[in-house]
Amino acid sequence: MCELCQDLIDPKETKLAEVLAGYAGRKGALIPVLQKAQEIYGYLPADVLRRIGRGLKIPVARVYGVATFYAQFRLTPMGQNVLRVCLGTACHVRGGAKVLETIEQELGVKDGGTTEDQRFTLEIVACIGACGLAPTMMINDQVYGRLAPDKVAGILAQYE
């Protein structure tokens, strides 16, 4: 199949093409386009980065440079659930590191890693803005506050 036909068939590619067309010629488009592409694909595959470079007329080395600079961008697929453990100051002081260690043991992965069964991707973040509830973590969009190491297993078990 040629590239043109693929464009017509894969709905993700069509969406990306729409995004690129919407930003064509606009200044400062790269980061919002990468954000939208990540929404479409769940992560940023190399081919998508190349395509974005072509679409925005930006050298692909720069696209890659930007994609690897910002923590938000993922170049590998994520697990079904994204678990963000807060190690902001408030959480650190109230024992966030111990919660993290427990989670690392429980899941067998470290910061940025995805479990073998693709169930969780673990990320360390610095402050999710719920410091009053420290220590905290977020699974997908749900915030969990006032954590302790012994509460971890129960929460993780709720996710498929």
């Binding site: 400062g28 488009a29 790269l30 980061i31 919002p32 990468l34 954000q35 930007v66 910002y70 923590a71």
Partner: peptide
């Protein structure tokens, strides 16, 4: 509105400007 992409250094004003311009912060 410009949404940041996760880099503390982008709070520094020249890095922030680079980021709005679509560059590494």
């Amino acid at each position: 509105i410009k949404a940041g992409a996760g880099a503390f250094v982008c709070g520094e004003e020249t890095a922030l400007i680079a980021s709005i311009e679509g560059k590494r912060g």
